[in-house]
Amino acid sequence: MAMGVGPLLLVFMLGLGLTPPTLAQDSPTYKQFLNQHYDPRPSGRNSKYCEKMMERRGPSDILMALQRTHPLLLLLLLTLLGLGLIQPSYGQHAMYQRFLRQHVDLQVTSGDDRYCNVMMQRRRMTIRQCKPFNTFIHEDIGNILNICNTSNIPCKNGRMNCHEGVVQVTDCRETGGSSVPNCRYRAKSSTRRIVIACEGNPEVPVHMDK
């Protein structure tokens, strides 16, 4: 016996998961939506109404989740600060960033003439003129920061914020006669004593003094 089109269509619709409205109205998600976002008889649309309704309906699940998570995030931040994994003042110190750009290269342990020619241009020290002399430090940043924890010594300008340490370096000295942008340098790699000026709290290197 052939079945009519109407029953077949109904079975097909139910198979797609289309739920009758009466069943959807019993859904906890639907009830939560009504509780948080629907008011059939609003008593006003001003700030007082909003405060009253937010107090009556309670905070949303998202807000409650944020309130539960906030102490955990704070604890995580304090833990990272305690371990020294987050150093907010370092990244905010413009002179420190300049020092890193001009004087720190962790990728190599020494360099030749070609290294100096490439790095001096790459680190933007040959834009307006050929910088006569520059030193690249080939040490871990932690080792460089530790130099700032050593005893203070006088700087060339007379200030007492300099510190000294022994590190691996490549000194790049301009050969003379070259011009921007084709500056040419002679390289000298060695392990030697350097003097750097440090500032800030905690102290970070901001100037290569010697």
Rank of each mutant, 00 (worst) to 15 (best):
L100V: 14
H163S: 08
S179Y: 10
V166W: 04
L10P: 00
S43R: 15
P59K: 15
R45H: 15
P88N: 07
A197N: 01
L75C: 02
L16M: 13
S190V: 08
Y38D: 01
S179C: 01
L75M: 07
F136K: 01
T69A: 10
S110A: 12
Q87I: 04
S189R: 07
M120Q: 11
V206F: 03
K131V: 12
M208I: 08
Q97M: 12
K156V: 03
M208Q: 08
L74W: 02
M1R: 07
P88M: 07
H207V: 03
H163A: 05
M125Q: 14
Q129A: 14
Q92H: 04
E174A: 09
T79D: 10
M160C: 01
I137Y: 05
D209E: 14
P20F: 08
L100S: 03
D61Y: 01
H37M: 10
C198G: 02
K156C: 00
C172Y: 05
C148S: 10
P88W: 07
L145F: 04
C148P: 06
K188Y: 13
T170M: 08
G44V: 03
R56L: 12
K156Q: 11
L18W: 12
P88A: 07
H70R: 12
T150Q: 11
M120G: 04
I194E: 01
S47E: 11
T29P: 00
Q92L: 13
P59C: 06
P88F: 06
L23M: 10
D26P: 00
C172H: 07
T69V: 00
P205M: 00
H163D: 03
V11A: 14
L72F: 08
R98T: 13
A187E: 04
L72G: 04
T170K: 06
T109I: 05
V167A: 05
R123N: 08
Q121Y: 11
F99Y: 14
H103D: 03
S178M: 02
P59M: 15
G176Y: 07
G165W: 04
R173M: 11
T150A: 10
V167H: 08
V206W: 03
I141Y: 03
G84N: 01
P28E: 13
S190R: 14
T109D: 11
G44E: 04
M208N: 05
R123L: 01
L74I: 13
K188M: 14
Q102M: 08
D112M: 05
P88H: 09
G15P: 02
R124Q: 15
I86Y: 11
G6A: 13
T150R: 14
R41M: 14
R57K: 15
E199P: 00
T191G: 08
C116A: 03
